[in-house]
Design a protein around this nucleic acid. Structure first.
Lengths: 107, 107
DNA sequence: TTGACACATTCCCATATGGGTATATATTGT
DNA sequence: ACAATATATACCCATATGGGAATGTGTCAA
């Protein structure tokens, strides 16, 4: 899944979908990439759960599923303290509290 | 650079280096991977600035440079709000403050 | 039903990449 | 100087992957 995001065009697709759901055609236009290529990238993103598709007539509307990026966020966050000196003991505690709250609210 | 981190073994190397600097031999042992392979992975990580090397006699001691992961962290953080409902307006303000402080301290 | 449209899938090709093996380079110890 | 050690590099091979072109599938409109 790190792999899915390692592709520049796929990151562009995700960035685009952050604006809102989009049919394939729109993505093809914006990325200036062939339609089959976009479909293939979307397939990869679908397989790792980073996007969902909704059928609307003869078009498929793709929607971002940002939660799929949480594993990456979690992994990278472990390294945050190596560059952010502000990420000291207090910050760690606060972040853990924030995480705990989030878990309690949506178990 | 996303690419460098997309490789599982390279992430293992980074995770290992989080414990502290290590010569190549130690990494080879821990990863149970060939020495040339480890050297090649380290080369990739060096080229994207995720690790630094220090010469110590006939061995090269590699050290983590976590700051190189900041771009990834920044990119993924844009998506955090899509899965964390606690990431509301107040949190955004607080995080921006934290960023600002960090910039002021290390410009 | 037929044709146009939106998208997915297939096939082909060029390139990149990771592992394995062998070898080169540099440094230490004797 | 020589052998051993630590690491880097070169070469080979199998596989994965992205783009391009062609084709398949399902849907709407007339």
């Amino acid at each position: 899944m790190f792999n899915a995001v390692a592709e520049p065009r796929r990151r562009e697709i995700l960035d685009l979908l952050m604006e809102g759901e989009r049919p394939v055609g729109d993505i093809v236009e914006r990325l200036e990439l062939g339609q089959p290529q976009v479909s293939k990238h979307l397939k990869v993103l679908r397989e790792v759960g980073l996007v969902d598709a909704r059928e609307d007539g003869r078009m498929r509307v793709y929607r971002l599923n940002g939660r799929g990026l949480k594993p990456i966020h979690d992994w990278v966050s472990n390294y945050e303290r190596t560059w952010s000196e502000r990420f000291d003991a207090l910050d760690v505690v606060l972040d853990e509290l924030k995480d705990k709250e989030a878990r309690d609210e949506r178990p």
